[in-house]
Design a binder for these strands. Structure first.
Lengths: 342, 342
DNA sequence: TTGAAAGCGGTACCAG
DNA sequence: CTGGTACCGCTTTCAA
């Protein structure tokens, strides 16, 4: 059923019906009530594409999906979905094709020009991220999940990566550890740099020398966690503690330690960052894993909320949230073994 | 720039331009080439919402996202994205609100009536899944990821869950195991029933009695894997092998075994189903995990492909693919310990 | 508070 | 092979 038919059916003009259904103030309340009721009864629903053409709104928030599978992605999406379930807005996933890899900007440009989305979320920013300048220039509203040092004003939400890793490192130092390895994220990303900064700051404060051999960069996979931990543990003197970037890398560290007959929580301490997953929890690891934790799902929800605010007129430059991280001590953060103190 | 302007600019009618750009056959090739070129030069792009209104096509494939986070989701999505990256079709995620939980059908009905998607993917079907009848009736093209016993004709793609679990179980029986525990999926879902059938069939063939205490149902989380394995391993005689529904439950089984000082691959065998994740791999577990494997990403890709075929006219009832599963033996499937043979 | 009518930006039928 | 034009279904001035 279309608007015209429906309007005729209930003896009103399309105009009034449209206004009643869209919540315009100038409609008599009694009329509105009747329209709503009749719409429900007769099953009238506006054609979304017509609405979009007429209003120019797309009714969707865009997310670009990189080809690399990412286990955090679905949690973030769930968070977005939580917030959007009460709105008439969808999430539009734009696949990033292989050939876009070299030219990611082109993808964002097309997305903006196609007007398929009202706003987008930018993930994994770099300190000077060209996507930010581009979207700003194209005037497509966006929010950055993470942070960037670019001078273009923009909305962002980030967790305190520097503080989190600093705190983990400090805690391990307090426990007497001196050789602490860091499993960092992919090189060049802002959060990776922040984590490194937190790590170095903690060492510097305690007068512990920074050793680049104790730091690695890469994706958050068990494989990388394992390989790096193996290599690190083969050094002499070997590290007595690891700061792991994710639960997956922590699993790799566990495995490396076991494969060398080292006991996590005794010979080796570990503190990992936990994005909070429903299917893999730090409490349930053996031994239970000490973590800095922050729900990526909550971030997805809040980011969506902020984006909706921007679509209602809030200034992007007003928006910037830095979420603190809690350090949760469990069984894997223990005093450094005496014999390893050199 | 809009079609009219662009057409005037290059001295052609909107009609011809539209046809040239959309690949209609009746356009002179020279004209088409020129139009394409000029469009690129002048940056003309059709307004997607106008196209959708005029054609009635939505340009998107829908996926309903349940509130529960699911670590397989993003891999499946990646697969879809792989296939769609060469098409002008997006993925539309519809959040399932809390209040839809009791009435999921309503959500699909709204999705269909809103015409926001051209087709949808149905996940986690049940033997008599009402969504299938509904979408069939609403004439929204769809494909089922999994299987359903409903008589309504429909397209589907599934992996051979029954065969996979049967094979795992048989293999363990061949190795001398007699008390084999099964960590199954959520109750009521088709794949859960299929897996149970495979398990029971293998036992029956070998004349091993079925013991319901050795079977559990639930989400694929490390937590559930741990809890069930603990309980099972406290029984006397205890199980000597586990067939785990996922990598995550397998992690729980590992932990349970360790917590009881049992050695996986010696005291306890494990074969799990692996959906193939880039960040957590069976080879890299310690000990390396024997699995039945099947890429959920490949399934996402193929399902999308089939959906596109349906949108081009292929009959839904023609489509049904059952993917075989390979059993990959690694270190966790070993002969049953002698002393456990009773 | 309500209604008439002109867009929104394309597509596709019908002529030529 | 190209063009004129009536839609697609809703929103939003403008007028009453």
């Amino acid at each position: 059923m279309k608007l015209k038919e429906f309007a005729r059916e209930i003896g009103l003009s399309p105009t009034t019906v449209s206004r009643a259904l869209s919540g315009y103030p100038e409609v008599n309340e009694a009329t509105r009530a009747r329209v709503m009721e009749e719409a429900a009864r007769l099953g009238y629903r506006p054609n979304i594409n017509a609405v979009r053409l007429a209003t120019g709104r797309a009714g969707a928030i865009g997310v670009v999906m990189t080809k690399a599978g990412d286990y955090q992605f679905s949690e973030f999406m769930s968070g977005m979905a939580d917030r959007l379930s009460s709105e008439d807005i969808d999430i539009l996933i734009t696949p990033m094709a292989e050939h876009d890899t070299g030219d990611e900007l082109q993808l964002y440009r097309r997305l903006a020009e196609s007007r398929r989305v009202d706003a987008v979320v930018i993930h994994s920013p770099r300190p000077r991220d060209p996507r930010i300048a581009l979207l700003h220039q194209l005037k497509l509203p966006f929010i950055v999940h993470g942070r960037s040092a670019t001078e273009v004003p923009h909305a962002w939400l980030d967790i305190d990566n520097e503080g989190a890793i600093k705190r983990s490192t400090e805690h391990l130092l307090d426990l007497g550890h001196r050789r602490i390895a860091l499993l960092n994220g992919r090189e060049g990303l802002t959060f990776t740099l922040h984590r490194l900064a937190g790590y170095r700051a903690a060492l510097a404060e305690r007068g512990v020398a920074f050793d680049p051999k104790l730091v690695t960069h890469g994706n958050f996979t068990d494989e990388i966690g394992f390989r790096f931990a193996r290599t690190a543990l083969e050094q002499r003197p070997r590290p007595t503690a690891f700061v792991a970037g994710s639960m997956m890398t922590a699993l790799g560290v566990y495995r490396a330690a076991r494969s060398m007959n080292l006991v996590i929580g005794r010979d080796i301490s570990v503190i990992a960052h936990d994005d909070v997953f429903p299917y893999l929890t730090a409490e349930n690891m053996a031994p239970s894993l000490s973590t800095t934790r922050s729900s990526i799902r909550a971030a997805g929800s809040r980011i969506t909320d902020l984006l909706l605010q921007m679509l209602s007129g809030r200034e992007a430059s007003d928006i910037g949230e830095l979420w603190p991280i809690e350090l949760i001590l469990r069984e894997t953060s223990r005093p450094a073994p005496k014999d390893a103190a050199e």
